[in-house]
Amino acid sequence: MKDVWTIYKRELSSYFSQPIAYAIIIIFLLLSMVFAFTLGNFIEAGDASLTYSFFLYLPFVLMVLVPAVGMRLWSEELRTGTVELIGTYPISLWSVILGKFKAAATVWFIAITLTFPIWITVNWLGEPDNLAILSGYIGAYLLACTFLSITLLVSAFTRDQVICLIVSSAICIGLVFATFDPFVRQYSKTFSPEVKDAITALGVWDHFLSLARGAFRLQDLIWFASIIVASLLGTSAILSAKRS
């Protein structure tokens, strides 16, 4: 555990000693607010909730911004050769993977928490269900962590950050759009209902929106957890295979 903490501290300070974390947090705040006040009709809708004005648009923002935070995690180590230092320190590969993942997850925790003015605003304008809002925030954070774990896995494959960004964004975009309603309506014409249901159960919306509406369902938590755990295990397998 102490090794995880040492790696975590290094990674986190490297995010905040460079412009990357600040830039991404600011862009995230801008985009999420722009969506909430334009497409989301936050003011005109007259609805004291954040589900359809704010949370609904987060996956679109996260699917491209999360890979930008995670892309350097392994690619940078592979490019500069510091992976050789990491590989000869008396620590396990797992503590490095966990430390890196947690550091990037902390950046997203900060970014998502900093959207709190919209929570204050909605409480000031009306009387929302604050537990549902908390559940929506948990959903947003879990979604960011899910995209992050996918990015971490992709970054273990390549020393090129741009390739990592493009490939992991493509995967996240795929996960978001494969189950986005207008698309689902298209392919539900060709596929049988069972196939359609299977696809929607794999995608983001079913699980994210149920949390955004304030429903805690076991299957949603399992969906998030299984992608995260599988990606982290995959990262470890790829890095071990790369050495031999």
Binding site: S13, S14, S17, Q18, T80, G81, T82, L85, T88
Partner: peptide
């Protein structure tokens, strides 16, 4: 000491 003397450049 690895051959290319790799370091974390941001530190």
């Amino acid at each position: 000491l690895p051959e290319s003397a790799p370091l974390y450049n941001d530190m």
